[in-house]
């Protein structure tokens, strides 16, 4: 408690600590979902889900998603049942008062890889793989940043020493990240003939994670266009009405 107070006092006195290292701003990418008419590319979403499932789910949870939400990326009821059924879900207590494991159902939340943060840290050299369900909204730069981290693994420049168990990453703040490069060429076998380059996988999984951060994005933009058209027309009418009412005032 004392420490908290003095930390806060420090923050007040000196403001916030200087950013640790020169984080490089990730370059802007072109996304199917950006712009006012943007929609998610369905094929990319499904490939992205595959990348998440096979490449990230071992470490990262997406706790805000339920299996039934996958309808939003174009899966049918039966596909979703099959996907959910691959997970083991702890349920109970049953009539005997015991907890039991059962296969997942569409209404279940995505099962997380670790039961709690400590277990996650224990499995990752003390680093915590954050929940990815909000990642595209929870970082400055959003999708561009997520993509940047995924493709940002390069050999460290001369003179930079990378700590044990850390990896050099151009776009991660501080440039040393505990996550080993998660994507490899052809690491995820795409079914639709798309070439599984690291960039392609990064793009797909980022699209999927952006959808996971805000599954209502398309509904929002589509309604927004209608609302704006209505408001512009209606405001035009209001302007005409105002002109008419005021015509006689001098």
């Amino acid at each position: 408690m004392r420490r908290l107070i003095s930390a806060v006092a420090l923050l007040l006195a000196f403001g916030t600590a200087a950013e640790a290292a020169e984080a490089v701003k990730p370059p802007k990418q072109h996304w199917s979902f950006s712009g006012i008419f943007g929609t998610f590319d369905r094929a990319s979403l499904q490939r992205g889900f595959q990348v998440y499932k096979e490449g990230c789910a071992a470490c990262h949870a997406v706790t805000q998603l339920s299996y039934r939400d996958l309808k939003g990326i174009g899966y049918q009821e039966d596909d979703i049942k099959a996907i959910a059924a691959q997970a083991k879900v702890m349920d109970g207590p049953n009539d005997a008062g015991e907890m039991f494991e059962r296969v997942g159902r569409p209404s279940d939340k995505f099962v997380r890889p670790f039961p709690n943060e400590n277990a996650a840290r224990a499995g990752n050299n003390g680093a915590f793989p954050p929940d990815l369900s909000m990642i595209a909204k929870a970082r400055v730069g959003g999708p561009d940043y997520v993509y940047g981290v995924l493709v940002g693994y390069v050999p460290p420049p001369a003179g930079v020493t990378v700590a044990d168990g850390m990896h050099f990453n151009t776009y991660f703040p501080g440039q040393q990240i505990a996550m080993p490069a998660p994507l490899n060429v052809d690491g995820v076998p795409y079914q639709d003939g798309t070439k599984a380059t690291v960039e392609q996988q990064a793009k797909d999984v980022t699209t999927f994670l952006t959808w996971a951060s805000e599954p209502t994005l398309e509904a929002r933009k589509q309604m927004g266009i209608k609302v704006l058209i209505f408001l512009i027309v209606f405001t035009g009418i209001l302007y005409a009405a105002k002109r008419k009412v005021w015509a006689s005032v001098h």
Binding site: L231, T235, L238, A241, K242, V245, W246, V249
Partner: peptide, 11 residues
């Protein structure tokens, strides 16, 4: 007069 003007501003 001002209901009309305020409505336009609101728009």
């Amino acid at each position: 007069y001002y209901t009309a003007k305020d409505s336009f501003g609101l728009g």
